[in-house]
Each structure stands twice: as C-alpha cells, then as structure tokens.
Deep mutational scan, measured.
Amino acid sequence: IEEVKKIVSEIQSKQLTRITINGNTYQVNSPEELVEYVRKVFS
C-alpha cells in the first residue's frame, strides 16, 4: 500500500495522463480515476 501511495503522489505531482500498471497503459483524466484503476489492480 505504501508503494501505491508513492506512485499516486508521483503521478499527481507530475500531472501524468497515462499510467502503466502490469504492462497495461491506462488513460487517466483525474486523480479520482487513477485511484479507481489502482483499486482494481490491487484489490
């Protein structure tokens, strides 16, 4: 979970619009959307 928080804060600070998780690239339009992807991947 700490690793996830680190990734999320990194993305928020860079305002990235794409994230790659487990080889899948997602278009991310908002931090909320990012959190949803993270929940799916780590749930």
Rank of each mutant, 00 (worst) to 15 (best):
I1C: 15
I1Y: 13
I1P: 12
I1A: 13
I1V: 11
I1W: 14
E2W: 11
E2Q: 08
E2H: 08
E2A: 10
E2F: 11
E2S: 10
E2I: 13
E3D: 12
E3K: 11
E3H: 11
E3G: 07
E3T: 12
E3R: 13
V4E: 08
V4C: 15
V4Y: 15
V4R: 04
V4K: 03
V4S: 04
V4L: 15
V4M: 15
V4Q: 07
V4N: 03
K5T: 12
K5A: 14
K5I: 12
K5G: 11
K5M: 14
K6W: 13
K6Q: 10
K6V: 09
K6F: 11
K6T: 07
K6M: 10
K6H: 10
I7V: 07
I7E: 02
I7H: 03
V8C: 08
V8E: 04
V8M: 09
V8Y: 05
V8K: 02
V8S: 01
V8G: 01
S9M: 14
S9P: 02
S9N: 12
S9A: 14
S9C: 12
S9D: 13
I11M: 03
I11F: 02
I11Y: 02
I11W: 03
Q12M: 15
Q12C: 14
Q12P: 02
Q12G: 04
Q12T: 10
Q12V: 13
Q12Y: 15
Q12L: 15
Q12D: 03
Q12K: 11
Q12E: 09
Q12W: 14
S13P: 01
S13G: 07
S13N: 10
S13M: 11
S13C: 10
S13Q: 12
K14V: 04
K14E: 04
K14R: 10
K14Q: 09
K14F: 05
K14Y: 07
K14D: 02
Q15S: 10
Q15F: 08
Q15D: 02
Q15T: 04
Q15P: 03
L16C: 13
L16V: 05
L16Y: 04
L16P: 02
L16D: 00
L16Q: 03
T17F: 10
T17G: 01
T17K: 06
T17I: 11
T17P: 02
T17H: 05
T17C: 13
T17A: 04
R18G: 04
R18E: 09
R18H: 07
R18T: 10
R18A: 12
R18S: 12
I19M: 06
I19F: 04
I19E: 00
I19G: 02
I19D: 00
I19P: 05
T20A: 05
T20H: 05
T20N: 05
T20C: 11
T20M: 08
I21T: 00
I21K: 01
I21A: 01
I21P: 00
I21Q: 00
I21R: 01
I21C: 11
N22K: 08
N22A: 08
N22D: 08
G23F: 05
G23A: 02
G23V: 02
G23Y: 02
G23P: 15
G23W: 11
G23C: 08
G23H: 04
G23D: 09
G23E: 03
N24Q: 13
N24F: 15
N24R: 14
N24D: 06
N24C: 15
N24S: 10
N24Y: 14
N24A: 11
N24L: 15
T25R: 04
T25I: 10
T25D: 05
T25F: 09
T25Y: 08
T25G: 02
T25L: 10
T25P: 04
T25C: 14
Y26C: 07
Y26R: 01
Y26H: 05
Y26Q: 02
Y26K: 04
Y26N: 00
Q27M: 09
Q27D: 08
Q27R: 07
Q27Y: 08
Q27H: 08
Q27W: 09
V28M: 15
V28G: 15
V28D: 11
V28Y: 14
N29G: 15
N29P: 06
N29C: 12
N29I: 05
N29Q: 09
N29V: 06
N29W: 09
N29F: 09
S30M: 04
S30R: 05
S30C: 06
S30W: 06
S30N: 06
S30P: 10
S30K: 04
S30F: 06
P31M: 10
P31Q: 02
P31C: 10
P31L: 07
E32P: 03
E32Y: 09
E32V: 04
E32A: 11
E33D: 07
E33Q: 07
L34R: 00
L34M: 02
L34P: 00
L34K: 00
L34N: 00
L34F: 02
L34A: 02
V35W: 08
V35N: 01
V35K: 02
V35E: 07
V35F: 06
V35G: 02
E36L: 06
E36S: 06
E36G: 04
E36M: 08
E36T: 04
Y37H: 07
Y37D: 00
Y37S: 04
Y37G: 01
Y37A: 09
Y37N: 02
V38P: 00
V38F: 05
V38D: 00
V38M: 10
V38G: 02
V38E: 00
V38Y: 03
R39Q: 10
R39M: 14
R39V: 09
R39K: 12
R39T: 10
R39N: 07
R39W: 14
R39F: 11
R39S: 06
K40W: 14
K40T: 07
K40N: 09
K40V: 05
K40S: 10
V41C: 14
V41R: 04
V41A: 12
V41F: 14
V41W: 13
F42R: 01
F42Q: 01
F42V: 02
F42M: 09
F42T: 01
F42I: 04
F42E: 01
F42P: 00
S43Q: 12
S43F: 13
S43G: 13
S43I: 10
S43H: 09
S43M: 13
S43V: 07
S43T: 09
